[in-house]
Design a binder for these strands. Structure first.
Length: 239
DNA sequence: TCATTAAATTGTT
DNA sequence: AACAATTTAATGA
């Protein structure tokens, strides 16, 4: 039961965003009043159900997306059909700027792991801001820089043999304060969802989380994980 | 608002 | 993969 969403469909369902949802968009606050006004007018917010695809490989990029609430995953289908997950995208995270800048087609699938609120800025407005706003450019540069760091870290995670360490580092990535500023100290994610992201069974994730809890790096809660010590989580299993 | 019931999530085998 | 226990969400008085 996998529903797909065309850009037109998303647009048709979009509603005008309300202040509480937009209050947490970091880059909006840095804009000049007239630029912010235009961005606000262009922003669309849609609710997507768990399992829905926001963008598909090959579709032309029409929006730059941001997660208001919920959890998404970025993945790709390999030649043999086994999808590989690149990363999860948590509240406050924005993505797709690489593709939007080049005016190309999406190179990955973005799927909602559960019901989520997603904001979209059109390519036109994105470029309009890129052409005149220095704060906006700063945000984008920082965004690209941080994400590069995260992808390099992800390569290391893949090579880690210890499942506990993989869960720890993947979790730490989702608590990245710059890429996902609105996660806070409590990340709403089920152990099943975390299993999808890390590529482990739910049982193994459960086991890993228990140990991370014992080490005081996190506290396992119903339907989520609370970070007690982000540094400890990042360095779990290293010596 | 409260009690009951269904659904989701977790911990364990 | 299956099970029971626990927590949350939904429902209706």
């Amino acid at each position: 039961m996998l529903r797909t969403s065309s850009a037109a469909y998303l647009l048709a369902r979009a509603r005008t965003p309300e202040p509480p949802e937009l209050a947490d968009i970091a880059w909006l606050k840095a804009l000049l009043p007239n630029e912010r006004e235009r961005a606000l007018a262009d922003l669309k917010v849609v609710q997507v159900e768990g399992g829905e695809l926001l963008c598909r490989v090959g579709r032309p990029a029409t929006y730059w997306f941001g997660v208001i609430d919920g959890l998404l995953k970025m993945s790709n289908d390999t030649a043999i059909g086994v999808p590989i997950t690149f990363t999860g995208i948590a509240p406050g995270g924005w993505f797709g700027e690489g593709t939007v800048i080049k005016r190309e087609a999406y190179r990955y699938n973005i799927q909602a792991l559960r019901k989520s609120l997603v904001a979209g800025l059109t390519v036109e407005t994105f470029h309009w801001l890129l052409d005149r706003s220095i704060p906006f450019n700063r945000f984008i540069v920082q965004q690209l820089n941080e994400r590069l760091g995260q992808f390099i870290a992800a390569r290391e995670i893949d090579r880690l043999g210890d499942p506990d360490a993989r869960v720890a580092r993947s979790l730490a990535a989702l608590f990245h304060p710059i890429l996902y500023p609105n996660v806070g100290s409590l990340l709403r994610i089920t152990q099943q969802e975390l299993g999808y992201l890390v590529g482990l069974s739910r049982q193994r994730v459960n086991e890993a989380l228990s140990r991370l809890g014992v080490s005081e790096a996190i506290r396992v809660e119903y339907g989520g994980v609370r970070v007690l010590d982000l540094e400890r989580l990042r360095g779990y299993g290293m010596r």
